[in-house]
Simulated scan of single mutants.
Amino acid sequence: MTTPAPEYQLLARLEAAFDGLVEASETLVNTWRHEGGQAWAFGREQADAAWLHEALLDVWYQDGQDGRSTRSHVGLVAATPAAMEAARRVNDTKQAFADLLARIREEEPSLLPEIKAVLPFRHPELHTHLRGSGLARLHLKQCWRAIPLAPAPVARVRFAWYSSGRSIKRLSVREAEQKLLALDTDAPHVRIQLRQLAGIPDGEPLAQVQTQAPLMRANLFFREPLEDGHRRRAMNVALPLFVPADDGRLPDHNQPPDHPPQTRTRARRRDERLEQEPLLPSLRVYRYRR
C-alpha cells in the first residue's frame, strides 16, 4: 500500500478540518435552538435558527465578489452556557482550519485552487442549495473568521458604523521605486512620480495607506468589571456577537443606521503624522510630516 504524498496528506487534513468546522457550526445552531435563546439580526425582521445557520455557514463567493472582501452578518445572540461552549468549539475548529491553510499556503501553494474546488463537495447539501444562487467557490477567509464572543455578561451593546479605518504600511524609498517600476513606466504620470521620488532622501520612511471598507463595531458595557478592571470593550462584528445569558435574554441594544455615513464622522487629528496629499498617488504613498 503506497503512502500518499505529503501534499495530499495536508489536503486530507484540511478536508477533515473543514468537516469539523461545518459540523461544529451545525451543532452550535442546534444547541442554541434547543436552549431557546433570543437573537437580533441587523437588517432582518426575524432572527431564528435558519438565519444563524445561514450566517455561520456563509463560506462562498458570490458571482463578481472581490476576493479581498467578505460579507457581514451582524447580529446579537443571547447564549446560555451550553451555547457559549458550542460557540467556543466552533472558533477552535476555525483556528485549526486557518493554521492548516497557512501551512499549505507556505509549503504547497499550488494546492489552493484544488482546495477551493474540492471542499464545497464535502457537504453536497450546502453546495447544491447554494449553487443556484450564484455561489460556487469556497471563500477561505469566510471559513476561518472567528465568531465574536463577549467574555462576560453584558448590560448593554451599542452598535455603530466605523468608516474611518485604514491600514498603514511603512515603505523604504527603494521599495516604493520598485513598485512604481512595476507599473507602466512609459505613462507620463508614472514618470512624474519617479522624478518626485528621486528627490526624496534614501533613508526617509514612507507610508502606503489602504482605506478599509466600512465595518460595524459593537461597544460592550459589562455588568461587572473585567479582570483588567475595564467595564467596556469595543469589538468588530462581521458575524453574530454571542453574549453570555443564563436566562437566554438579550441585553439592551440599539438599532444602528442601515448604511454607513457617506462622509468622515471623526474629526481629523491635529497631530496626524502623514501629509495630507500623497507623494505617489498611484501607490497611495505619503510622506510623514516633519
Rank of each mutant, 00 (worst) to 15 (best):
M1H: 15
T2N: 12
T3G: 02
A5Q: 12
E7I: 08
L10I: 05
L21H: 06
V29N: 05
T31R: 08
G36Q: 02
A49I: 01
A50H: 13
L52C: 07
Y61M: 11
G67C: 07
R68W: 11
H73L: 01
V74N: 08
A79R: 05
R89T: 03
T93C: 15
T93K: 14
Q95K: 13
A96V: 06
L101G: 07
A102K: 13
E106M: 10
A117Y: 10
P124L: 09
E125K: 15
R131P: 02
L135P: 00
L140S: 08
Q142I: 05
W144V: 10
A155M: 04
F159L: 15
A160M: 08
W161A: 15
S164Y: 12
V173P: 02
L183N: 14
L194I: 06
Q196F: 01
Q196P: 01
Q208H: 12
Q212G: 04
L215M: 15
M216L: 14
L220E: 06
L220D: 02
R232V: 01
R233V: 03
N236Q: 10
P244M: 12
L250I: 00
P251V: 02
Q255N: 10
P256D: 08
P260E: 04
Q262A: 10
T263F: 09
R264G: 02
R264M: 12
A267T: 05
D271Q: 14
E272N: 09
L279W: 15
L280A: 04
Y288M: 03
